[in-house]
Design a protein around this nucleic acid. Structure first.
Lengths: 209, 209
DNA sequence: GGGTGTGAATGAGTTCACAGCT
DNA sequence: AGCTGTGAACTCATTCACACCC
């Protein structure tokens, strides 16, 4: 069975909202209420969940704890993921210092850079290694996910290296669109593109859209 | 005429690629070649551009400089945009220090926080102001775009304030999905959600998808 | 009554394929 | 020959609406 990518994108949102509901001590939630929290229609939520099973009770809704457990299992949030960071410039250091990853099970276990003045330095408990050693260090399954925070010019070769090491998921902060083989997933974090997509609407006038 | 959002998202990518081609000294480019650079089909590119006009020459392709100018005009990249940052914690300071905005015409002109120990301090040439003064400071058209880097709990109220000041575009780094009126555009930067959407595929096995 | 699960209907977006220009 | 621009075909995703269950 093939699940639309849009569905996959929403599952973590559901999990996050359910985590909040759990923290609020709620036992049960309806697709309606979940939808209001996330700006998603209730029909959409039920349809999405129906790809994976029947988790609700008619007339009642979903058990918060149970649905949260199911979603964590489906999305793969019930384990630790090891990440390798490439590029320890200004942006890379901010990523290393970000406290939001580890509570969600994402841990940066290696950091690489090409700048000799950075190599060997310790940042947040991690020693920066030369990017030339990336494949040597990582190809024994050292990381599940790659984070690329290099200049655009080097992103493709870095990603090629990561892919050769079996990395099949890449979070790309570089302003570039590298090619990857089938089965490798890339997500782009690009605030400038996000801003530019919005300026189109700002420029166009006050109307919605 | 109503333009699909996916088209709007791709226009800045075209502009970026054309900027690179220009820097490489290229005069002409085909939809085919542009597509290879961006992992977008040539039919898609031609269709996207056709929403706005006829910019190419059959048998030849697109004039790089001319198409770049047109796209900049369409997307609104040919002017300066003023942004207000709310939340000057660890993440907010990284955003203030990011060098990628100003070359693209995006300038942070104000920074707000609720932490008394931050208020009044200068960061990157900007004095941090109390978030309580946001509407007073901004409602005279002080900013076109809001950047929200607060905790999830305060994101909604901050965004409400920004919207009351006429801000119609928000770049949201907070892990929250606030409600905004029609005509206000929100883009979410959420690396954890991006990672979680990928772990679904990692967990599922080695196949593509 | 209230809310789920789901086939059917609708809608949106992408790809095809080709006429037409250079 | 080469490449654009675009209606038509098609694929994919969302919404509707209702049977069914609590």
């Amino acid at each position: 069975m093939d699940i639309p990518e849009g569905v996959i994108d929403r599952l973590p949102k559901y999990a996050r909202a359910l985590g909040q509901l759990e923290a609020e001590g709620r036992d049960v939630v309806s697709s309606q209420e979940l939808g209001v929290r996330l700006n998603i229609t209730h029909a959409q939520i039920r349809k999405d969940l129906s790809y994976f099973g029947r988790f609700g009770k008619q007339g009642r809704g979903y058990n918060v704890q149970m649905l949260l457990d199911e979603l964590r299992r489906i999305v793969g949030l019930n384990r630790q993921w090891k990440m390798a960071l490439v590029g320890v410039g200004r942006l890379g250091r901010a990523i290393l210092g970000y406290e939001g990853f580890s509570p969600q099970g994402f841990r940066i276990v290696a950091a690489f850079d090409s700048d000799p003045s950075l190599i060997g330095t310790r940042i947040n408990g991690l020693t920066v290694k030369p990017v030339a050693d990336l494949e040597k260090e990582l190809c024994d399954g050292g990381a599940d996910i790659g984070i690329v925070a290099t200049p655009a010019e080097t992103a493709q070769s870095v990603i090629d290296s990561l892919v050769r090491c079996g990395v099949r998921a890449i979070l790309n902060y570089a302003p570039a669109f590298p090619n990857v083989p089938d089965g490798v997933h890339v997500r782009h974090i690009d605030p400038v593109l996000a801003l530019q997509a919005m300026t189109y609407h700002l420029k166009a006038g006050a109307g919605p859209g």
